[in-house]
Amino acid sequence: MLVATPIGNLGDLSPRALAALRDADAVLCEDSRVTGGLLARQGIAATMIPLHEHNEAAQAPRLVERMAAGESFALVSDAGTPLVSDPGYRLVRAAIAAGIQVSAVPGPNAAVMALALSGLPPHPFLFLGFLPARSGPRAAELSRLRGIERAGLSATLVLYEAPHRLAEALAALAEALGPERPAAVARELTKRFEEVRRGSLGDLAAHYATAEARGEICILVGPAPEEAAAGAADIDAALRAALAGGMSLRDAAASVAAATGVKKREVYARALALDTTPEPG
């Protein structure tokens, strides 16, 4: 049983979720300290089994064997809906493959709540989870995303981000997607200091360059406007970003070619020219 838990306000724990946690033979959790605190506040004494990104691959076969023998488990994340940028996918896939029924108790989800509060088009939307933490891979991922948008994707983008990376993530988004793109930053959802700040990517990047951000954070970016196919300036900008992030010439060319749909040999030729020509200014 996949059980959604509160993302902040404990009043959001549903009666069905409480029952599922009480009735399970064990609760599978990311961090027993977090889940143990939640269970204690609800007066639930339950066996907890850690299930996180470092042990899920090894744990999944053993847990499936126990489920096949008749045991029932409640899977929770530290907050929100399991599997959404949290562990559990490998276990769910293994259980399904073994013919075990998997069910869920719906409940809080930060991405969907932030989308509803953002003021941006609610559908279609594309949930991207976390961007890469390092600047090079992040630039490559955003370049790939721009290529998909140029190919026709028009959707509100929803991302999670850590507080200490918010400013640089917003700056990277503004550079890759355009500073005028409408956006929103939602944080501390359902908690006392809940905040949704709306504006352009450029304005939000400037604000959080100096303002401290705390708590769990969602970034939302409005759909891309219609535009022409990638031109030489777009390709050069994407190459410079990838090279500045530490990618090799060949890898940068391959990444930008995949993102823009331009032939790899053409992008590689431009990358060679960029690498040997000083930047203007």
Rank of each mutant, 00 (worst) to 15 (best):
153 L>D: 00
155 A>T: 04
156 T>M: 03
156 T>L: 04
157 L>W: 11
157 L>T: 12
159 L>T: 04
160 Y>P: 08
160 Y>N: 04
161 E>P: 01
161 E>T: 02
161 E>G: 06
162 A>F: 01
163 P>S: 05
164 H>C: 02
165 R>D: 10
165 R>Q: 12
166 L>H: 02
166 L>G: 06
168 E>P: 02
169 A>T: 15
169 A>W: 01
169 A>V: 12
170 L>C: 13
171 A>K: 08
172 A>V: 04
173 L>Q: 10
174 A>F: 10
174 A>H: 10
174 A>E: 09
174 A>Q: 08
175 E>Q: 12
176 A>D: 05
177 L>E: 12
178 G>P: 12
180 E>D: 14
181 R>L: 05
181 R>M: 05
183 A>W: 06
183 A>S: 10
183 A>K: 07
183 A>R: 03
184 A>V: 07
186 A>V: 02
188 E>T: 05
189 L>Y: 03
189 L>R: 02
189 L>V: 03
190 T>S: 15
190 T>Y: 14
191 K>D: 10
191 K>V: 07
191 K>F: 09
192 R>G: 05
192 R>A: 15
192 R>D: 09
192 R>T: 15
193 F>I: 05
193 F>A: 07
193 F>Q: 04
193 F>H: 11
193 F>P: 06
194 E>C: 12
194 E>V: 11
194 E>W: 06
194 E>A: 03
195 E>L: 09
196 V>M: 06
196 V>G: 04
200 S>D: 07
201 L>T: 07
202 G>T: 05
203 D>E: 14
204 L>P: 03
206 A>S: 14
207 H>C: 00
207 H>S: 02
208 Y>R: 07
208 Y>M: 11
208 Y>P: 12
208 Y>S: 06
209 A>V: 07
210 T>A: 14
210 T>S: 15
211 A>G: 00
211 A>P: 00
212 E>P: 01
212 E>N: 00
212 E>I: 01
212 E>G: 01
213 A>E: 01
214 R>G: 01
215 G>L: 04
216 E>P: 00
217 I>H: 01
218 C>S: 13
220 L>Q: 11
221 V>P: 09
223 P>K: 14
223 P>S: 15
225 P>Y: 03
226 E>F: 08
226 E>W: 10
227 E>Q: 14
227 E>C: 11
227 E>Y: 08
227 E>F: 06
